[in-house]
Design a binder for these strands. Structure first.
Lengths: 311, 311
DNA sequence: GCCCGCGACGAAAATATCTTTCATTTCGTG
DNA sequence: CACGAAATGAAAGATATTTTCGTCGCGGGC
């Protein structure tokens, strides 16, 4: 009866991600959209004042947020913890970290009449935050799996439209530089047409912040059904796109506003993920990648002018 | 040897010592002599492995130390906490602090055999650094001038090839969204062809990290000579491209290496500059920009699938 | 040498806390 | 406007923590 500490909740399946230590704030923002109203209230309170909430019992937090204990436990579960007890523990850790000289994480939104210097500062801070959150919330197991798949792929297709299309192109450019066969598709029709050609051993990557972009989901689904290894880079780990993804890489969802549309910070997080993929693959295939990189660099040298200005 | 220590804990007076935050290890050592054998075992276990103990229940810790729950609670009390629950919370905080304390990897370069988690951390740190540097080094006067030019431009051309081409497209996408006439050119010939059409009141923007990319300099020169307002976004403020630029926006030049080619961090800085330009213009033209933004958002709504409400 | 008192210690009861179940309410939908 | 699905909270059920209380060992006094 006393030996019940080690439970096997790997079989539970629902929680492949281990509880996050400091990535909690990021997780809250990422998962908030898929929460119900009451749960959002709880999540907000938690993200707002970790230290305060850590001092509260389930009942206390339920009362504070005007909900019930059940809702609090449900929220804790959604955030990836077995129960409220563990969330509370993580909260205490987070509070301690913040205490010891961490960023206070206060961001005022960008206003219409902000001076340009403030705009620069706020944008920079915001994107830095996005990077930190994305890095903290990235599932390294999934990432490693995606890297392995990419490194051994016969060919790789990357799907993305709009702003995500540029990220897709960025990844493609990088992979091509280290000698991998990669192609970015932003035309939905051509994307599907190409996806049909994929088979086991190939890799398909879908990049969509919302996870609901049909033009991107469709080719991924086709690739998935053809047996290719599929990867989704999205800000919503529970969105439709993940249905057809063998590996899901989550980017942080930062605050957005009128002057700060989604395309901005989501792109930053996506690019970090893309960079991680690239470096990971470059590591695995180093012997081939390194010469390829310098070769591509040298091939472009003659297109650059002398560094110094003329007479 | 008799214990001549007289402790008066029985009285229900207010505890004079507030719960220790991180000085727990010290407290353990200080109080160890006044502890009984069993309590010392508990205290030792706690000081030895805060993280591990934080994961244990009273019963678990009692068993681990070969004592009883009551003893564990007594030890917690002696250490200044109301009960074991609070000791555990403090323990979790301590563990988190220790965890965050070790971050030695970030200054070193990315190595071929770095574990994937380190790659993520290093890349994120690096790009954060680039953002901070770029923000700090950005000339707000030049930026404001560029924004003014953009906001009043009849049309805007953006030149960039390779990785910078994607940044150029990003800027173009954003400007189009707020109703400005903008076009990105990555084809050098077409770029020049278009640059010839520019005249005073138009804006041309060249994006090149090295500042030496002929394919980008050339169209900027043409635009410059035609009387358009020219802007250069580059990492080298003294490079050839600045010859033909009315306004120079400098991005940070972070260190690069074999596994970390220039395209990575330079792109991050360039995107920050682009975002600043965009927000700046959106501010200036707010009355027109805001409706345009929401309109473009709504126009795309039907291309998104309903968010899955998973079982 | 034997008995007595003091305090450490743990088993188990008592309490607090967390988790689960289930009925009710709410909301979107046809 | 009725229907069904999802969300929510009240309360029962399960665990964990705290308290109580009796046993045991130790050292000193008689």
């Amino acid at each position: 009866m006393t030996n019940d500490v080690k439970e096997i909740f790997g079989s539970a399946g629902a929680s492949p991600a281990p509880p996050a230590p400091a990535a909690l704030a990021a997780k809250v923002r990422t998962l908030a959209p898929s929460m119900t109203r009451s749960m959002q209230r709880v999540a907000e309170a938690v993200a707002d004042d970790p230290a305060g909430c850590a001092a509260l019992t389930v009942t206390g937090l339920a009362e504070l947020t005007g909900t019930s204990e059940a809702t609090v436990v449900r929220t804790a579960r959604l955030l990836g913890y077995p129960g409220y007890r563990d969330l509370r523990l993580a909260l205490a850790g987070l509070a301690a970290q913040q205490q010891s000289g961490r960023a206070p994480a206060i961001t005022t939104d960008i206003a219409v009449d902000d001076p340009i210097a403030d705009v620069v500062a706020k944008l920079a801070y915001d994107e830095q935050q996005t990077l930190a959150d994305t890095a903290a919330g990235l599932d390294t197991v999934q990432l490693a799996a995606a890297v392995t798949a990419l490194a051994g792929a016969r060919r790789t297709d990357v799907y993305g439209v709009g702003a995500s299309g540029l990220v897709a192109q960025d990844l493609t450019q990088k992979l091509l530089r280290i000698g991998l066969l990669a192609h970015a598709h932003s035309d939905p029709h051509l994307a599907v047409t190409n996806a049909v050609q994929l088979r086991s051993g190939d890799v398909a990557i879908a990049i969509t912040h919302s996870g609901t972009t049909g033009d991107v989901i469709e080719p991924l689904r086709v690739a998935f059904e053809r047996g290719a290894t599929t990867v989704a880079v999205t800000g919503r780990p529970d969105s439709p796109v993940t249905q057809y993804a063998d590996h899901v890489l989550t980017t942080s969802t930062a605050r957005e506003s009128e002057l700060r549309p989604a395309a901005m910070s989501s792109r930053t997080g996506q690019l970090l993920v893309v960079d991680c993929l690239f470096v990971g693959v470059a590591q695995r295939t180093y012997d081939a990648a390194a010469p390829a990189l310098s070769a591509s660099y040298e091939a472009l040298a003659h297109r650059h002018r002398a560094t110094r200005k003329g007479p």
